[in-house]
Amino acid sequence: MKTTIEEIEQQIAGEFENFEDWLEKYNYIIEMGKDLPLINEKFKTKQNLISGCQSSVWLHADYKDGLVFFSADSDAVITKGIVNMLIRVLSGQTPEDIISSQLTFIDEVGLKEHLSPTRSNGLVSMIKQMKFYALAFQTKYGA
């Protein structure tokens, strides 16, 4: 059985549970942001760029065997850490599940501020774009 979006969200929330303060929390996000590139360099194109006022995100999507696979990157390491988590949650899921996902874990781990529209770091647009890709694949392949 494939792990569901909710299950992965719970896993991530669990990882954050033991952090005593913001320093530990952000150290963890930064570590995730410093992980290997989450996207093949050839997909870091202008077309895949989501520009925010503060930071930018590159997002690429593939469709295989009824599932959507995402890869992404950001120029800012904290944004990239959050991008990493979003990919863990949404990549390899079906278009329907991606479209209907609520992504409540972001609020649960106390990172909601990064998804405020005024923050303008590219993350809000990235989630919209991920769902848009899912919808496009669903329409195209009738998944």
Partner: peptide
Amino acid sequence: VHSYDAGTLIDK
């Protein structure tokens, strides 16, 4: 260091 990262942490 990206200014967004620095700003996020300085805020804390």
